[in-house]
Design a protein around this nucleic acid. Structure first.
Lengths: 99, 99
DNA sequence: GCTAAATATAAAAATATAATAATACCTAAT
DNA sequence: ATTAGGTATTATTATATTTTTATATTTAGC
């Protein structure tokens, strides 16, 4: 990776590096959801969700389609779901996190 | 992932979400390096490198062993190297980044 | 046109991160 | 004991992120 790629990659990772935004990615792994479904499921405010979704969309991690008065969110790049497996292993193996 | 796991995972991702720290991980993919080798190769100050290494160590992404007056850094968890492949694809496919 | 539901934006305060410069700490060798 | 090389820490300033609250926008249905 050249320096400029690393800058952009850092922005993408930063977009994932937040509990709510990670939650969004995880929930969307099982399919499309509306904004309301997301903030209810993740227990945060509507405003918070709207702002966090914007960040995820900017980095093209999430895509949104409009239908009437609602917006449906889905994952743009399911490839990053691999991260959750790595992360689970890391939490357990290196950060001694157990259920 | 439960909420608390997401908090910790966010911290791990945050540790990776920085151009210098991504650079460190990438350079260490090819093997152990001293602190000096790292900051020379990545073109940043010694102080900066020391601080960034501390963050990577805290999240157990990098391990350090001491030998005399030098410190040798290596990757604790090579599993996250997968990220670079995902990221390359993402940069090209979604963020229209070309060489 | 009015209303209500769904979503977005703005503003502000609190907190965190980034970057630099200066200084301190270790350790091996003399 | 001093020195020099390698690394860490601290302090500071600038900038960015997070979170909350209030308000605005959009659209469907009446």
């Amino acid at each position: 990776m050249v320096a400029e790629e690393r800058n952009i990659a850092a922005d993408v990772l930063k977009a994932m590096a937040h509990p709510v935004r990670l939650g969004v990615i995880e929930v969307l792994a099982s399919g499309e959801k509306t904004v309301t479904e997301l903030y209810e499921e993740l227990g945060c405010s509507q405003s918070m969700m709207s702002q966090q979704l914007k960040i995820l969309c900017q980095q093209k991690l999430v895509a949104i389609r409009k239908d009437g008065t609602q917006k449906y969110c889905s994952l743009s790049n399911r490839d990053f779901l691999k991260l959750f497996d790595c992360m689970h292993a890391h939490l357990r193996q290196f950060l001694n996190f157990r259920d």
